[in-house]
Design a protein around this nucleic acid. Structure first.
Lengths: 210, 210
DNA sequence: CTAACATTAGTAAGCACTCACTAACATGTC
DNA sequence: GACATGTTAGTGAGTGCTTACTAATGTTAG
């Protein structure tokens, strides 16, 4: 009985780029769980499945790796912006648009909770790239939102609210709720979450419309 | 030439309680700035103005000190609850009440930003007392708020919103705004802050009222 | 064969924490 | 008031362990 050829034996030797990506992914996971200082290079090497010096072939120092993962995550944050922009282009009515954005934001963080945790960790650490992370992860989403509000205010459908403040208000409600789940560990069932989001969307809608 | 008697040499020797309090205060400051792991016992001792063993006369381990400061801050959190409850007892109209709470929350964090930072740090660290901290710092405020909403819903002044979700929505808007200032370092002038709070209060008010 | 990928076995520095000891105060006795 | 006595608050100089990082060397794909 021959062993089928395709057993995916974990590759021991990898092309440089792949290995680098593997390190970044492991680092995102560990740093988001334990923080930068709470993660040792030894742990990290074990998680990647290599020895410590391999890490230093790809990144000169541990904090260079920290910077690399923040940049990686910031880039991925562009996805959120484009998804939000796409929702805006769909010409949904206000309610559907707000619900769509709420869903986007929660799904985004549920799919990978390490993002919000690392965003907070890096901000608390005062990391030099933390502002860039915030600018590319949070602000774009907020801007798509604010742009929609501005338009609807001009069209006379909404009260003359400040679009940016209104955007902060909406994203704040959602963001804090997401945070209480993924950072503070408040347990919420799928239904509870859906109900909460709907209610928040409604409160906001009624709050801004004429 | 005699040296005048009354040179106020910083007290070198302190009663146990005072010294303990001094250590806790220094720890709150340093931990909130650099995190638990980012603060060394050496730094801490220097900040207090004593040698390291003194720390260990009051706290058996560094993490026991961590627990002590969380407890201390959680206790101080009761103040916020009582201030909120007092505002409720004043029988203000809805708008004034919401504004009062918004002011309370922002003033509370502006007065001492270490609270929100430590709350986040402890949650990210998964500290055993973090949930207690959240329960006593966040939840009480939320409950005073939810109670008010519930009452006004019953009186028919507000739409039949879920009081707890509405509370989370309002505190979320405010909380995230405060966080963006004290954690993410978004600069906001006194006027901008006041304008933002007013707008948020209005959006919420309109969002829940009939 | 060799260049790139990996490992074994370190090093120096920093960490939380401790030991042996001393200075300052409080109190009771004369 | 002066002095001995027990207690509390403090220190200088470490300990052993962990950490980020590295030099010397092995191994395998192309």
């Amino acid at each position: 009985m021959s062993i089928p050829a395709a057993i995916p034996v974990p590759k021991q030797r990898m092309p440089s780029g792949e290995r680098r990506a593997a390190i970044v992914n492991a680092a995102i996971k560990l740093f988001s769980q334990n923080g930068f200082r709470g993660t040792t290079t030894k742990q990290l090497a074990q998680a990647v499945g290599v020895s410590e010096p391999v890490l230093y072939m790809h990144f000169a120092t541990k904090s260079e790796l920290y910077s690399a993962i923040i940049e990686t995550l910031a880039e991925r944050g562009e996805q959120l912006r484009s998804m939000a922009a796409r929702a805006d282009a769909e010409k949904l009515d206000d309610l559907a648009f707000f619900r769509q954005l709420a869903h986007l934001l929660t799904a985004w963080h549920r799919e990978d909770p390490s993002r919000i945790r690392l965003l907070l960790y890096s901000a608390l650490d005062g990391h030099e790239l933390s502002e860039m992370f915030y600018q590319r992860q949070v602000v774009p989403f907020l801007e798509v939102f604010a742009a929609h509000i501005r338009k609807r205010v001009e069209e006379g459908a909404f009260r003359p609210v400040d679009p940016l403040i209104a955007g902060r208000a909406f994203c704040g409600m959602l963001g804090q709720y997401v945070q209480s789940i993924h950072v503070f560990g408040i347990a919420q069932s799928e239904q509870e979450q859906q109900a909460a989001l709907d209610e928040m969307v409604h409160i906001f809608m009624n709050g801004v419309k004429k």
